[in-house]
């Protein structure tokens, strides 16, 4: 990568977080260019939230360094805080205040004058389609409306870098689509966005770069296409004739950190392949040398799920 520090919105170098014996983040390196949308993708407990909390200065790393918006997260904490916004996993708005009051309060805390805070609040309510609910207490809002207001609260100060920690967790499909749309608009307006998600589809749709994190380690980083290319490009799905045949096939392909999935219920096993005739033929021979256990097979383009499974050994969640 040829990026100079000036073009980087986030650069993390060996970030580590340990609680006593337990290491929750292990020497994380990553770089996010200005204006990019970066998704940190991983299962629950992978270290996503810890990463966000360290980069947003809320938690101190045990080791390692990072710069956000050009400022060191420890030495220049206040400067980092002024340049970022955080929308966390839990909705962070006051239920007993109206939408407008919440936004005006955030504006005042950002250092806007009373009048400017009011103007900004009205503007954001309009943009997030909350004008009609502006004067209602947020305890009367739906889940989607709360999330939108939460996101809007983070944008009061025109942050350079926007952190979104699992922004769509717990949302119904429609609210999720609306939120995706808002994130895309935000990206178009030039903000750098760092989001975490356990949903592949979300990372695939929103981000130009994706970091795969598992057990506190960044296991892969790249564009969705680059990541998909890492698992040979194709997947061979095998279906066994009966449960005992299925078990035999599983045994024969045992040495596979490469096995992508196996589903006893449907007697199917997925194996990575380059998709060439020779490669597929060799795999079929390995799985079923006596040619009596296999019912049928099919070859597919690899998906991000396969990448995830190959690199982490875990099923990702689906939207």
């Amino acid at each position: 990568m040829t990026s100079t520090p000036q073009t980087l919105a986030i650069e993390a170098d060996g970030l580590t977080k340990a609680y006593g014996e337990l290491t929750v983040l292990d020497a994380l390196h990553l770089q996010v260019e200005r204006g990019a949308v970066f998704a940190l993708l991983g299962p629950n407990g992978a270290g996503k939230t810890t990463t966000v909390r360290i980069l947003t200065t809320l938690t101190r790393a045990t080791a390692g360094r990072a710069r956000v918006a050009g400022h060191d997260i420890v030495a220049e904490r206040s400067r980092v805080r002024r340049a970022i916004s955080l929308t966390g996993q839990f909705v962070a708005i006051d239920e007993k205040q109206s939408g407008e009051e919440n936004l005006r309060m955030m504006g005042r805390l950002r250092g806007l004058s009373r009048a400017a805070a009011r103007r900004r609040a009205i503007e954001l309510l309009e943009r997030f389609d909350l004008t009609d609910a502006a004067h209602r207490r947020t305890e009367t809002y739906s889940g989607g409306m709360r999330r939108r207001l939460d996101l809007a609260s983070g944008l009061v100060g025109d942050p350079e870098v926007v952190f979104l920690d699992e922004p769509t967790t717990g949302l119904d499909p429609r609210s999720r689509m609306e939120l995706w749309q808002l994130v895309r608009e935000l990206a178009r307006s030039g903000s750098t966005i760092f989001l975490t998600t356990q949903y592949l589809e979300e990372a695939d749709r929103l981000a130009n770069r994706i970091g795969l994190v598992d057990n506190g380690r960044l296991v892969a980083q790249g564009t969705a296409d680059e990541l998909k290319a890492r698992v040979s490009g194709h997947r061979l799905d095998l279906t066994a004739v009966d449960p005992s045949a299925y078990l035999r096939i599983v045994q024969r392909t045992e040495n596979t950190s490469r096995r992508l999935h196996h589903i006893p219920e449907t007697l199917t096993i997925g194996l990575p392949t380059d998709g060439s005739a020779a490669g597929v033929r060799a795999l079929l021979d390995e799985a079923d040398p006596d040619r009596c256990d296999l019912l049928r097979f099919s070859v597919h383009q690899a998906t991000l799920d396969d990448v995830f499974l190959t690199l982490t050994g875990k099923e990702p969640q689906h939207v």
């Binding site: 947003t56 809320l58 970022i84 929308t87 966390g88 839990f90 909705v91 962070a92 805390l109 609260s153």
Partner: peptide, 13 residues
């Protein structure tokens, strides 16, 4: 308990 404390802190309050 809620997320609001993180929001305040990230606003440097």
């Amino acid at each position: 308990k809620g997320g609001i404390i993180d929001r305040f802190r990230s606003l440097d309050v």
